[in-house]
Amino acid sequence: MTVEIAVQDLAGARIAKAEGADRVELCQALGATGGLTPSHGLIQAVSAQNLPQGAQVLIRPRGGSFIFDDDEKAVQLADVQAAVAAGAGGVVVGGMSQSGGLDLPFMEALADVANEEAEGLGRRVQLTCHRVFDVLPDLTKALESLIDLGYTRVLTSGGAPKVQLGLESLRSLASQAAGRIQIQAGGGVQIESIPSILATGVDAIHLSAKHQVPSAGGPGGGGPNSLIEQTDRPTVQAAIAAVRQYETS
Score class of each variant (00 low, 15 high):
42 L>G: 06
1 M>V: 15
6 A>T: 14
214 P>I: 10
127 L>I: 15
213 V>M: 08
116 E>P: 02
189 V>W: 01
132 V>L: 04
111 A>H: 02
215 S>L: 08
148 D>G: 13
114 A>N: 11
10 L>P: 11
48 A>E: 00
13 A>S: 13
125 V>H: 01
179 G>M: 08
72 E>S: 12
132 V>Y: 01
240 I>A: 03
204 A>T: 13
16 A>F: 04
241 A>N: 12
186 G>M: 00
237 Q>N: 09
80 V>M: 03
234 P>M: 04
203 D>R: 02
115 N>S: 09
5 I>A: 04
43 I>M: 07
156 T>N: 04
155 L>K: 02
213 V>F: 02
196 S>C: 03
217 G>S: 07
124 R>S: 11
122 G>E: 00
135 V>K: 13
37 T>P: 06
230 Q>G: 05
179 G>N: 04
48 A>Q: 12
139 L>A: 15
185 A>T: 03
21 A>K: 01
78 A>C: 07
103 D>S: 07
39 S>C: 07
165 L>Y: 07
30 L>P: 06
109 A>R: 05
37 T>L: 10
122 G>Y: 02
99 S>D: 08
107 M>E: 04
200 T>K: 04
235 T>N: 00
179 G>V: 14
11 A>H: 09
170 L>P: 06
96 M>L: 12
241 A>L: 08
52 P>N: 09
68 F>I: 13
20 G>A: 05
65 S>T: 15
173 L>I: 14
228 I>P: 05
62 R>T: 14
65 S>V: 15
93 V>E: 03
13 A>G: 15
170 L>E: 14
175 S>A: 11
222 G>P: 05
128 T>K: 03
187 G>R: 01
109 A>N: 09
44 Q>P: 10
136 L>N: 04
123 R>L: 15
68 F>E: 05
242 A>F: 00
222 G>R: 03
170 L>R: 08
181 I>W: 01
231 T>H: 03
220 G>H: 05
10 L>N: 05
202 V>E: 02
72 E>Y: 12
102 L>H: 03
67 I>Q: 14
199 A>H: 03
168 E>G: 12
32 A>K: 11
17 K>V: 10
26 L>K: 02
122 G>W: 08
94 G>A: 09
226 S>A: 10
247 E>Q: 15
224 P>N: 10
68 F>W: 11
77 L>K: 12
151 Y>E: 03
62 R>V: 10
208 S>H: 04
33 T>F: 00
143 L>S: 02
142 A>E: 02
20 G>S: 08
53 Q>M: 07
68 F>R: 14
34 G>P: 11
228 I>D: 12
190 Q>N: 03
236 V>C: 08
238 A>T: 01
158 G>F: 00
14 R>C: 10
184 Q>K: 11
34 G>K: 04
16 A>I: 06
63 G>V: 06
243 V>G: 01
53 Q>L: 12
65 S>F: 10
138 D>M: 12
120 G>T: 14
98 Q>F: 03
178 A>Q: 14
175 S>F: 09
123 R>N: 13
138 D>R: 13
76 Q>W: 00
124 R>F: 07
173 L>H: 04
46 V>D: 02
121 L>R: 14
205 I>M: 01
37 T>W: 01
178 A>W: 07
208 S>Y: 01
165 L>C: 09
133 F>I: 09
182 Q>G: 13
212 Q>S: 06
11 A>M: 10
60 R>Y: 05
129 C>P: 07
220 G>F: 09
147 I>Q: 07
